[in-house]
Structures are given as C-alpha cells and as structure tokens.
C-alpha cells in the first residue's frame, strides 16, 4: 500500500524544487565541520573558509564536535552523507588535530549526496584574514567571482596535485557567468607548487593606471587566508562514478525570442506592436477650421480639385511605416 506525500506548504514545495536535480546547477554549497579534537589554527581555517564562501548562503558551518565523522575509514562517511543531504551541500571541509596528523583539513566533494572524492591536507603555516587585516583597502567584495593562478608544472604532472587543482577550482569558482564586469575583478587564489608543498594565497586585486599599455596594471595584495599546505591522504573518485558525474546535458536549441533582433551595427533591436490609435473619438479642443460649414466648403473645394488628375508619387514611403509597426531601439 502506497500513498502520495505532497509538501504541505508552498514554502516546502519551493524548497524541494530548489533541491531537485537541475540541468543548470546552482553554486555548490560548502559545509564546514570539526572533529572531536581540533586546534585553534584549524578552527581559524574553518571560520575563514566559511567567511569566503558564506555569501549567498553557499556555506553552512557546524559548531558542534563530530565524533562519528571519519572520512577515510570504512563507514565513517555515513554521517557526512546524512548531513550533506540535510543541508543540501555538495562540498565539505572537515578539520581535526591529532598527534599523528596535526592541523588536518579534509576537503571533499559529493555527488548525489555520496562522497565522490577527498583530499587530506596538512596545514603547516597559516595566516588568517584577521592577522593580515583583510587587506583593508584591497579587501574583496563578498561573493565576487575570483580569479585563479596556478604555478608550477606539478599541477599537471603529479596526479594528486592535478586533483587538488580541480578541487580548489570547484570549491571557490562560484557561479558560472556569461558576462562579467572587468572592473569588478577583485580577488585571486594563487596556488604555487614547490616540491611537496603548496602555497595557497588569497589576494586582493588593485587595478592601477598603467604607463606602458592602455589596460590597467594589476597589483596583488595578500588579504588572507594564506596557507602552506602538504598533501596527506587522498581518495580519487571511482571511475564509473566520475563518468556518471561528468555527464553533460544534451544541448537543446535555444527558444526563439520573438520580436527581438540582433544587428552587428545597431545592436539589439526590438519590435513593439501598438494598438491602432482612435483619433476620431479623441476629445480635442474645438477649432474653427473643423466646423461643419468650413468642412463642407473644404470638401467642395477638394471635389473641384479632383476633377483635374491627381499627382502620383509618395504612396510607397507611407506604406513602409504602418501605424501598427514601429521600430524602437532598446
């Protein structure tokens, strides 16, 4: 025996629709957790990551300790998957601190609320936003789209670093956009691979007037958080799951937009349809010329003129612009 369960309120319905699988997905949300033991450094890391992602509700931070989250152990991810489904987050960052793995940060991704892949990072050196003063003048706007700069061939040659590169891009890239305000570029994540270490710097961008070229000169200011990272354990996605997750939607033909045309010279041109104007019934000021006697006299005059043959000519020009079709530049 089955029955249909519907959401009881419109709000709940909207919520479910928001969480449903979509062709064009929304920004991946990040959840931040800590284990039973964590150092002040790792707590700072977590709160700074939260600060970076929280704009637009793209981050959820849990304040309680999590005993049963052990990402790299068998069955230790059930709790994570439950929380992911509950908060609709597909990225997670889990911070712990132990003697064996001091200042440990596990970052990972989910697919359909199941763990896809993870990387365990050791934070060797850390400068928080507060320590660097947030860059003050160069402080980036909350939720702006960041740039990424990756340096070093290890990001290509070493598989775990290639993995990290993809993961970092997925974590911080924000919304996929078609257009961007170039003057609004105000932050960059700099990742540099040197041997086993990775330097990760979050910098603000200052655009200054350039002497050499017509484009502005870029200056970078460290605004934090800044890490020195070493990679510990990692788990790659299983091949079939990754293939499943990389599926692309079939590109559907764009719906034809009516009455709007593109023109390389004039730009966007729209067409407006106006209803016929009823001039006859309009209340206008009465004028002498419109009085009946004068109208009749004028009609008689016109009739007399009609006897002589009428001139030919400007009919085609009038037909071009009918009163119902008027072009307007948008």
């Amino acid at each position: 025996m089955l029955r249909i369960v519907k959401p009881k309120t419109k709000r709940a319905k909207r919520m479910l629709e928001k969480r449903a699988p979509k062709v064009d997905e929304n920004v991946k949300r990040l959840m931040l957790l800590q284990g039973t033991k964590s150092s002040s450094l790792i707590k700072n890391v977590i709160s700074d990551l939260y600060h970076l992602k929280k704009a637009g509700g793209a981050a959820v931070k849990f304040s309680r300790k999590n005993d049963n989250v052990r990402p790299f152990e068998g069955g230790g991810e059930t709790s994570l998957e439950f929380l992911s489904a509950k908060t609709d987050c597909s990225l997670f960052a889990f911070g712990t601190h132990s003697k064996k793995r001091p200042n440990n940060l596990v970052i990972g991704r989910m697919y359909d609320h199941h763990v896809l892949d993870m990387i365990e990072l050791g934070v060797d050196k850390y400068q928080s936003i507060a320590q660097l003063g947030g860059g003050r003048k160069a402080a980036p706007q909350e939720g702006s789209k960041p740039c990424f700069a990756f340096l070093g061939d290890a990001f290509e040659s070493k598989p775990e670093l290639a993995h990290l590169k993809e993961m970092l891009l997925d974590f911080f890239r924000g919304e996929e956009v078609e257009t961007i305000n170039v003057g609004g570029l105000d932050r960059v994540f700099v990742c540099a691979a040197a041997g086993d270490k990775v330097y990760l710097r979050h910098c603000g961008i200052e655009l200054k007037k350039s002497d050499e070229s017509k484009f502005p000169r870029v200056e970078l200011v460290e605004v934090g958080p800044c890490f020195d990272i070493s990679i510990r354990r990692s788990r790659k996605p299983s091949e079939d799951l990754r293939r499943e997750a990389m599926k692309m939607p079939l590109k559907t033909a764009k719906k034809k937009v009516k009455n709007v045309k593109g023109d390389s010279l004039q730009g966007k041109i729209g067409k407006i349809y106006m209803p016929k104007q009823e001039v006859e019934g309009m209340a206008l000021a009465k004028m002498k010329g419109l009085k009946r006697e004068r109208r009749q006299a004028a009609a008689a005059k016109a009739a007399a003129a009609a006897d002589t043959p009428a001139k030919e000519g400007d009919g085609s020009v009038v037909a071009e612009e009918t009163p119902t079709q008027k072009k307007a530049r948008l």
Binding site: K145, F148, F150, D153, F155, E156, R173, L185, D228
Partner: peptide
C-alpha cells in the same frame, strides 16, 4: 577566470606572488 603557468619557477613564496 583561471590561468596556469606550468613553466613557472620560484624560490620563495614572495617570488611566487
């Protein structure tokens, strides 16, 4: 908005910036 330089070499974090 990503740029990647595989050829880059540096000795210190300041240089990498």
């Amino acid at each position: 908005l990503m740029v990647f330089d595989p050829r880059a070499s540096f000795s210190s974090p300041a240089e990498c910036l």
